[in-house]
Design a protein around this nucleic acid. Structure first.
Lengths: 122, 122
DNA sequence: TTTTTAGTTGAATAATTGTTCAACTATTAT
DNA sequence: ATAATAGTTGAACAATTATTCAACTAAAAA
């Protein structure tokens, strides 16, 4: 057991082998931040409702607002949020903008999580 | 086109058929909040690092702190967070607490997201 | 018994985030 | 041209959250 050299933590390194091994498996900071952002996009129930709706229907902002009982502004902000994360895409037609899913992985992740929660509740 | 009756949104219902159809597909509020919480647990890069480490190694708090260059306190807080969400479990042995994954779905979701990000970067 | 160490916990602080509000653009209808 | 509508945007506010700090418990070592 030796005192840790990292300078930032307040620990002794107890299991130097474990630490050395695990350190090799660390992912790149960039990838981890991108992954965190992807999950962050899904971490709000309003955004999940939107994604769930867009799984089955292409919808415009007004319709989403009416379904969710929210103002267009609030919905639009969240749509921009999801668009930035490349989870949805918008298609302008006249005055309206139609939104739909823009990612094959979202649906998989969404379903996997739903299964997980439903199983955990049993 | 009629004015929306929901009282909360500031819209006209332009496409009443779409709205009526989509409303049937709404998930229960409880399920959506639980799903959002699950993603929230994964939406922080510190927690993702911890989960990535615990995919391969059972580790104690000191070791995790040393690997991540963080104080034990900060790490412990996040571990409690992940434990509450039932994503990891702790096993006490003497003074040490060994943490490991406590969920088969986490690994699937984690890998799916990693693939998604790596593909999107191409 | 006393001291050291691993880990937890609650309060405080700083940063982030969701919604509201008001002002705005672009398109369509009158 | 003017008015109405769909949607966007930035600032402000309230709520949430990650980390720090200090005090704490429990187990092991001296």
């Amino acid at each position: 057991m030796t005192r840790c050299k990292c300078g930032a933590c307040d620990c002794n390194v107890i299991h130097e082998d474990n630490v050395a091994l695990a350190q090799k498996d660390m992912l790149e900071e960039d990838l981890l931040l991108d992954m965190a952002d992807f999950y962050k996009a899904l971490s709000d129930s309003t955004r999940l409702k939107i994604i769930n709706l867009l799984c089955r229907h292409e919808l415009c902002v007004c319709d989403i607002s009416a379904i969710l009982n929210m103002t267009k502004s609030a919905v639009s902000h969240q749509l921009q949020n999801l668009k930035e994360m490349k989870l949805i895409k918008g298609r302008k037609s006249g005055k309206e903008v139609w939104y739909s899913l823009d990612d094959s992985h979202v649906l998989q992740v969404f379903k996997l999580c739903k299964t997980h929660i439903l199983e955990a509740k049993k």
